[in-house]
Computed example of a mutant assay.
Amino acid sequence: MVTRRALLLGSTAAALGAVAGCSAPAAPGAAPVPASGGPASGASSSPGSPSHSAAPTSPRRPTPRPSPEPAVPTHPTPELADVVAEGLDVPWGLAFLASGDALVGERGTAKLLRVSPGGRTRTLGEVRGVVPPRGIGEGGLLGLALAPGDEDTLFAYITTADDDRVVRMSLAGGRVGRPRVVLAGIPTSTHHHGGRLLFDRAGRLLVSTGDAERPGLGQDRSALSGKILRLRPDGRAAAGNPFGDRTWSYGHRNVEGLALDDAGRLWATEFGDKEADELNVIRPGRNYGWPRVEGRSDVRGLTSPAATWSPTSACSPAGLAVAGSTAFVGALQGRCLFAVPLDGTGAGKPEAWFAGDHGRLRTVALAPDRTLWVTTSNTDGRVEPGRDDDRILRFRLT
């Protein structure tokens, strides 16, 4: 298979502005437009996990306890530690194993890689059935999520010739098995696939879907597009969903970032069209406005974002991770890493880090050692890639 990286190196990305509000490049080195934060309309704090008393232990032979996770400051500062891997082809999905190694999916080649913290990279195989994007399309092998407590079962969001779908596959023996369909029939298009996967604390699978360039689907609660879905691992609607179907929230344009905070609240990043990009705290059954509104609104029945970026050329928010009380957002057009202070369900003003240093930033994930792994997205047809693109960067949080 001819990779997108081979096609793109040495070429320029013409006609990039054709996709308004998605991820056309900003001027190199341009400073992001100031963004704003504020409380999420109509949202309330969720209680954290209950504490449990330690089991009695013998004074002679104490019960072994797992080492605590490294502490993260309340509002950590990111500091570039190193480059974990380079020469990748649009790394999109990323899921960590308990060992600290990461499973990384290349969007266009559909290859699944295993990358160690020390930079050792090996290919586990190719996910069958994936139709790669054409031109500056956004499909292919997208989000990844490991089944809770089972590192041999991987879930993936993929695009095919007919639809977008969620599949699961075995990784037993260190090879990629045949994908089994979990959910099919998600409308597809050239752009706006969503594609992020995340398991919540109850072991239910959260799936973000784009509007497939059909804005009205976001307000159609019976449609799979323009939603955050909540599924059982077998693809059926999870118990407790607000409408008795797979929909968890609706009125979304294109959500590419999902993350839980320490209290279990769900956060999502969303691409706007022309007016405003969004960071939302997600509540079940809420309507997030698209296509009726972008950004904040006082329209009854619509939930306003916790933070916004305006215009959309300031950010194009893709990946999302929450560490301490800070949301870290990968910005495609903004070409930076945004740090957004969180306070319950509210958010402060986003602060840009490393503006223009690494190009377009896509996926952001918190590793088991509490460092931040960030993938670049410079070989996706929107900009001319550098010699070592695409890369996985690692940031210390201090």
Rank of each mutant, 00 (worst) to 15 (best):
A98Q: 11
A98W: 01
A98F: 03
S99V: 11
S99N: 09
G100F: 01
G100V: 12
D101C: 05
D101Q: 08
D101T: 02
D101K: 08
A102S: 11
A102K: 04
L103M: 07
V104P: 11
V104L: 15
G105I: 05
E106C: 03
R107H: 09
R107W: 15
R107Q: 14
G108N: 14
G108K: 06
G108W: 14
T109Y: 14
T109K: 13
T109N: 06
T109M: 09
A110L: 09
A110Q: 05
A110E: 02
A110D: 01
A110Y: 05
K111G: 04
L112G: 05
L112V: 09
L112M: 06
L113C: 05
R114I: 12
R114T: 13
R114E: 04
R114M: 10
V115T: 04
V115W: 14
V115D: 00
S116T: 15
S116C: 07
S116F: 01
S116D: 00
S116W: 04
P117H: 09
G118D: 10
G118Q: 15
G118M: 13
G118P: 11
G119T: 02
R122E: 14
R122H: 12
T123N: 09
T123F: 08
G125E: 11
G125Q: 08
E126V: 15
V127F: 07
V127M: 09
R128F: 04
R128K: 14
G129S: 03
G129C: 08
G129E: 00
V130F: 08
V131I: 06
V131K: 15
V131F: 01
V131H: 13
P133T: 03
R134K: 13
R134D: 00
G135W: 00
G135M: 00
